[in-house]
Design a protein around this nucleic acid. Sequence first.
DNA 1: CGACTGGGAGGGACCGCTCCCACGAACGGC
DNA 2: GCCGTTCGTGGGAGCGGTCCCTCCCAGTCG
Lengths: 332, 332
Amino acid sequence: MVAALAGVSRSTVSRVVNASPRVTPGAISAVTAAIETLGYVPNQAARSLASRKTYTIAVIIPENTAKFFSDPYFASVIHGVATHLGNTEYTLTLLIASEAHPEKTRRYLQGGSVDGALILSHHADDSSYLQLSSTLPVVFGGRPMSNTRPADAGPVPRNHIVDVDNVAASTTATRYLLEHGRRRIATIAGPQNMAAGFDRLVGWRAAIAETAQNPDLVAFGDFTPPGGESAMRELLARGESFDGIFIASSQMAFGALRVLREHGISVPGDVAITTVDNDYFAQNSTPPLTCIEQPVAELGVEIAQTLVRLINGESVAELSVMPTRLIERESV
Amino acid sequence: MVAALAGVSRSTVSRVVNASPRVTPGAISAVTAAIETLGYVPNQAARSLASRKTYTIAVIIPENTAKFFSDPYFASVIHGVATHLGNTEYTLTLLIASEAHPEKTRRYLQGGSVDGALILSHHADDSSYLQLSSTLPVVFGGRPMSNTRPADAGPVPRNHIVDVDNVAASTTATRYLLEHGRRRIATIAGPQNMAAGFDRLVGWRAAIAETAQNPDLVAFGDFTPPGGESAMRELLARGESFDGIFIASSQMAFGALRVLREHGISVPGDVAITTVDNDYFAQNSTPPLTCIEQPVAELGVEIAQTLVRLINGESVAELSVMPTRLIERESV
DNA sequence: CGACTGGGAGGGACCGCTCCCACGAACGGC
DNA sequence: GCCGTTCGTGGGAGCGGTCCCTCCCAGTCG
């Protein structure tokens, strides 16, 4: 191996590879030369077996990849994560969790293949991840879902969370409609088994509660354009009129807009819209949408930073809430 | 450890964990019980060090994640890959390649962390991956780019490729416009450093070459909606008229449509459109687009299958070309 | 000039698992 | 009843690193 060619011991090779300060320049150059000619790459398995470190971090993503991938939100957050991790010694890996074979994911995570895990967009359904942090450093991007509800099986370990205040954000977006003279405000809410869906409906309700309106103008979508379409169709089919609507994601808003256009309903003339996520859809629909912007990239950075600190054993705040801001466009 | 609690040797534990047939039912139940009470998860590093297998496969994705994620094509292909791998013992991992620190990716891939790698959408720029297959089983989803050009540094090892015939597909799509009476056919081509972009332009040229048309009605985009927008603006700004256009991706077509609408140019009245990728954009734009459909999920399955066979040392065809088909809609 | 000091290099145990080999018991055939 | 098989099990040698401990040698000081 390398040690023989360089004429030194394995210990010295290890020191050179790990940039230990106490090595003679001569030894360093001999070893690097040997590494070069041999095309040597240290075996990660052996290394992590001995050192109990892998320097890789996993982002766990649900198997139903289509939804995950198509949402610019995740792309941006992951970009933020990757950016931060790029400056560290950690490698980022996205782990596709096969729902049919959860033990594969478990083996990977608990078998020491990674130093820590990131969970974005947690569903109420996969409660397994709530326990993960007792085995492994874990950070949730967005509050995990069961925290709203009583723990069903044993105590849930304290989880580290980086989130935005979805309730406040949607209250703001809904009030904005009211402040601009709209009186009957509907909403298209997201999936109720995800915090972003749940909390944004809570926020809408909070704003509506301050008015005399009957809070029943709700339809549900799955955060995708087709989901927004069918939710809007459902809302229109009910025959109740509304002059403003808060839509829980710009992708749904995009789908909903198509339906409004079909029905000859003008925006913002007949119906004003506010939504969440300042992405391509919000910026480029007709008209461009007034929306709540989340600091997506910063969110990613913060999540990554939190996890790395956790791995290093530093003490980190359990909850970090990032600010949002409202961007005014032509849809109101 | 587990062996002590179960009252057997480590060898027997290993046999049980690896489902070896030659173990007494009694021993099996004793070991599984011990595993259960101890919450034992085998250490992957130790295991892969000893067995030289990791049972994980990486999809390498370029750092500029935004483009990658937002393209439904990748989501579908990866879904296909994940589906196939879900039925095997392999775990799928997406490796975000930090371009600023290529050695991190190299260590991960060549350091024995994975049994094989998948490369989707290879750019001409990252030639490093062309050599990867001499170290590791590798399959390219879509022909790697330098294959068109003379090797610049040493011999390129033979790479396994799963692809669609992009040239034929775009020729078909362009001819379709001609067959429907269009006479001046433009194109919005994709990035020329990617095979999908390059080949689709070649295909368009091939169809145009059969006509008397001057083949200069080309603008370039980056496969995204904004890219399609600016390409269309550029095309219109040139002042040359055209009554048909082949757009190399439906996302670009989506952006281009916005511009046509702005300019009051009707589709298909004034300009007919064909494109590639039967995704949400093609199906839901106004009007819905005639397009070439790629068998995206099947492509993923085929890619995964090929890689697993390669890892198992089976002999596999170096090139597998999947069929495409044209779907007629209202844009022509 | 000898003893002390400290930094660089080597030796070997060990990380947790796999896998080969050897051992012993049970069983069947002659 | 003895020997040859077969099958389950245990023992031990690695896999390729890390890291602690020891050793050696050169430089310094009394």
